[in-house]
Design a protein around this nucleic acid. Structure first.
Lengths: 219, 219, 219, 219
DNA sequence: AATGAATGAGACTTCATTCAT
DNA sequence: CATGAATGAAGTCTCATTCAT
């Protein structure tokens, strides 16, 4: 069983990504040069937001870190907020992908939980401070926070489907409530660990597995 | 058993507060008028930070909302950071108090969990957005985030003590790891519920109780 | 009659001014110090707008010319546009005052026209390029351009009253149409003269008097 | 006589245009495709400047509206200023043409004035906001404003010739002063009407005719 | 010739903090 | 002590212009 909890980043498959959000972009890059520019901007922005938080996140610094001019940044992102939105969407898509992959085939609970925890930790290890920052309401265009937002709805729907599968027969709680609670609890554990810098600590993954398993198996 | 999950705010006793931190204050409010001023400032600042997040939090607005001049604010709080620090300390003290009270006498697990969840929800209902915002690293003087910080150490120590009590005999996980995971999971559930505005929803409390109970009872 | 056309600036009474617009101000100056600041800002801004036009009009330059910091400017004017708006209102009030004073008592047509032309030229001589710039639509908050705007309505109403008085008995044209045409023609002559720098040229005033007189006396 | 004041746009002949100015162009459009490109750019630029004023007038927007790349725009117009200059010249030529045609043959005053007013209104109806914007000094290369500028000199010379013809025998004012005043007054009436959107209102034309006629007939 | 990505000076605006009254 | 006017560094964003492809 210790094999399952290796938490190596190699095990996580982050390649399946939903197409990027268009709404936030001022103009779709058509040439390969501009695609590279956009990619460099998003990457630099993600890194800065993750490492320095809101305090250190400004468009000048992002442009400089991305190796482009401030003008180029604003050619593709109409505002600072739209840049954050692009980061947010990409991060949520990553989490969504992990969840869907872990619960795909009808594998046993233990296997599902192990995969889920391992890959979520992998996703958050790339940019440890990111998710917490993204939850801050202030500079949010209400994309993630609005309960009707497509992303969060999709996210919870996926969780609910998996929860329903593994709780079959259990009553007393709605699958939706369990899914939401589970999602939030995992959020809390992972982001606080990221905050402390202990995300790679095997104990964190092991306890998270125990938490999820016991909750899904309860009653 | 439904009685246990009432989660009425009336049940929560938030009155026992550790004496205010001195370090953050430029000058000790010795007279009652000064105390009232300080109180008004912290109250206004907490409300603004909770409702508007970092984006809407600035010292001029706080001063206006508190009904004092910006000059007066700076007489009691030497910087914006010190003001945030005061808010942070007060909030942590509140959480700490809840935890200590719930685990005080050697009551059964079910009772402890019910009280803990109910009072934590009560604490976070006053300023739903506060705790999440305080976790953001941005304007933090690293008081809360540093693992050696007195508050967090105290916080986790309390959790650990309680966990040790209710897990007596169980092995395979350290009490510290369980305490931390538990604290983080509760954080996640409560803050996400606060974010969605569903903190008062009875299902949230009920599921949180199930989560904590099953985790502590596991193995 | 040549005495009437002296066009000395001393003859113009610009002191009767309608209270300043509040809407455009972020905060009403209460102390004498801040009143002086606001006055300095408006004065500098008027001068720059008049002399350099839109191209040279920026808030940094205004602040510097006024001898205040850029922060002070924004303490009283929430935006560049609001500053222009303040200038615009003040200028329109000046023109309005001239018109009302010239047509006040039931003096003969020649006297009215002479006073009107003399004082309008005086008003526009203070900041020769101002009015033309203010008519530019772009950075206008539609205060002057909106036909229902209180100022323009007031302005035309005053013109109409005077026109009605001096055209008594004449038919074939509505007093409103005549008033508007007259106002616009005077505008054109004065602003183009200001543009050329010939506003002080006695011929300009004399011809303007002939234009107005012949139009009002026609048919 | 009401027939004279029809002011139908069909009556206006805008086809006689002085050959385009070369100075402002970076390169002579020798092929038909180039000519079409230049035409498209000037047309788009005129429309934008007229409708949105200086605030909305930028080279990137003009290029997009013209359906050409920004690079192509700069191939024909070496700077933003040169583009404005081209617009300005074309507009002045249009006005000049109207004036010259109306005063060509020795027709009676009433006929001349009626034609002049009708065609000037027609010219300004195409781009109602244009002329007023062009008078702003801001991005002007002082081509129009300088009293010695060939265009304005030519313009006033034409006016003076016509004025001299219709004022034959009158003294007390120089023909030059009358011409200038007349030109400026017409300017004012037309541009303010354009600003209000009432340029097509028959009353505007009728009153303008009365204004011009009475002024030229005076004394 | 044409394209459009890239540039960066410069303009607008905010807000933490100071200090004269 | 209290006030609030003043400051200016720093951040957001625009747009005229260039140049590699």
């Amino acid at each position: 069983m210790s094999k399952v909890f290796t938490f190596s980043l190699q095990g996580a498959d982050l390649s399946t990504r939903i197409p990027k959000a268009k709404a936030a972009m001022r103009k779709e890059p058509s040439q390969s040069r501009s695609k590279a520019t956009v990619e460099a901007i998003i990457e630099a922005a993600t890194r800065i937001l993750s490492v320095e938080g809101w305090a250190g996140f400004n468009t000048n610094k992002v442009a400089e870190a991305a190796g482009v001019s401030i003008g180029s940044l604003y050619q593709y992102f109409p505002s600072k907020l739209s840049l954050v939105e692009a980061i947010r969407r990409r991060h949520i898509e990553d989490c969504l992908g992990v969840m869907k992959r872990a619960g795909k085939s009808g594998r046993p609970l233990a296997q599902f939980v192990a995969d889920l925890v391992r890959d979520l930790i992998a996703v958050h290890s790339l940019h440890p401070g990111l998710h917490r920052v993204l939850l801050d309401d202030a500079p949010s265009a209400d994309a993630f926070r609005d309960p009707h937002d497509a992303f969060e709805v999709d996210y919870l729907a996926s969780y609910t489907a998996v929860v329903r599968h593994y709780r079959q027969g259990k009553t007393g709680s709605s699958d939706e409530a369990v899914a939401m609670t589970l999602s939030d609890a995992i959020d809390g554990v992972i982001h606080n660990a990221a905050r402390r810098g202990t995300l790679q600590n095997p104990e964190v993954g092991a306890e998270l597995v125990r938490l999820v398993t016991s909750y899904l198996a309860a009653e």
